[in-house]
Amino acid sequence: MLRQLNMDTVQQNFWKEDLLREKMLRCDWYRKYGSMVKAKQKAKAAARLPLRLPTLYPKTPPSPPHAPKAVPRRAPSPVLKAPVQSEMYPVLPATRALLYEGISHDFQGRYNYLNTRKLDIPEMRYVFPITSNFSYGWQLGPPVKQEPVSCKMCRIESFFRKNGAFELLDPKDLVL
């Protein structure tokens, strides 16, 4: 849109009224729908917050009833809290010591710790499967090594045709 340098009074009044009308329309819309928009924004913000699940503590066995004694005792000892059960098994001290040796930039420290921790199978790191993706690799056992096929005629190099999609089929691509 070109800028008009020679505007007369009529054009100036037109633009003034037009901008004032747009401003009034925006104000009317905000008065009418502003509270609904704010409520939707708050609902979306609340939906984005992660859900906090309650922590389940292990059940303590019921204690046997105390027999009344005539001997006065000292003040009762404080009740021991049940230990918080973690999702992961504790790390071996030798593996944890890797965290404090060197820096990650030199492939030491955290880098070395994480690579060492990665070598353990999930059953050795976690008490139970945390996510649904864990069910694919949970308790599979050691990996089975497949021996290479000795017959080169049976081996297919690739799923795709070597000579293009619309070319005639190459007899090497066919498997009988």
Score class of each variant (00 low, 15 high):
15 W>A: 13
73 R>H: 10
143 P>G: 00
153 M>V: 06
120 D>P: 00
138 W>I: 07
32 K>C: 09
124 M>Y: 13
123 E>D: 08
29 W>Y: 14
10 V>W: 07
85 Q>P: 07
142 P>V: 02
98 L>R: 07
60 T>G: 02
3 R>M: 02
162 K>H: 15
146 Q>R: 13
135 S>H: 10
173 D>L: 10
157 E>H: 15
97 A>T: 00
27 C>P: 07
155 R>F: 11
52 R>F: 07
106 D>L: 14
92 L>H: 13
63 S>Q: 09
57 Y>W: 07
3 R>D: 04
123 E>M: 09
30 Y>K: 15
16 K>Y: 05
32 K>T: 13
1 M>T: 05
61 P>Q: 05
23 K>D: 15
5 L>W: 01
10 V>T: 10
78 P>I: 04
3 R>K: 02
10 V>H: 02
89 Y>Q: 00
88 M>R: 03
76 P>M: 06
136 Y>H: 12
30 Y>D: 14
35 S>G: 11
123 E>F: 09
63 S>H: 01
146 Q>T: 08
170 D>C: 12
24 M>G: 14
104 S>Y: 05
24 M>K: 15
82 A>E: 12
68 P>L: 12
31 R>Q: 08
159 F>M: 06
131 T>E: 12
25 L>Y: 02
41 Q>L: 07
65 P>S: 09
30 Y>L: 15
160 F>T: 10
151 C>G: 02
58 P>F: 04
72 P>F: 08
156 I>M: 13
79 V>Q: 04
52 R>V: 13
103 I>A: 15
162 K>W: 15
52 R>G: 02
140 L>A: 02
113 Y>E: 04
57 Y>H: 08
155 R>W: 12
132 S>A: 12
27 C>T: 08
149 V>E: 00
76 P>K: 13
68 P>Y: 11
5 L>E: 00
105 H>K: 12
139 Q>F: 10
7 M>K: 06
30 Y>V: 15
34 G>H: 11
75 A>W: 03
58 P>R: 11
92 L>W: 02
71 V>N: 00
84 V>M: 06
99 L>I: 01
108 Q>G: 06
74 R>Y: 04
98 L>D: 01
33 Y>K: 05
58 P>K: 10
108 Q>R: 14
164 G>S: 03
84 V>Q: 07
68 P>C: 04
153 M>L: 13
48 R>Q: 08
142 P>M: 01
66 H>M: 11
55 T>W: 10
57 Y>D: 03
172 K>M: 11
28 D>M: 14
81 K>S: 10
3 R>H: 04
18 D>R: 06
141 G>Q: 02
14 F>Y: 15
148 P>Q: 05
82 A>K: 01
175 V>W: 05
50 P>R: 06
66 H>G: 02
34 G>T: 02
19 L>V: 10
46 A>F: 03
145 K>N: 01
132 S>E: 12
163 N>D: 15
13 N>E: 14
166 F>T: 14
18 D>E: 10
127 V>D: 05
80 L>P: 08
90 P>S: 02
27 C>R: 15
171 P>L: 13
1 M>P: 07
96 R>I: 00
52 R>Y: 04
63 S>P: 00
8 D>H: 10
166 F>I: 06
160 F>I: 07
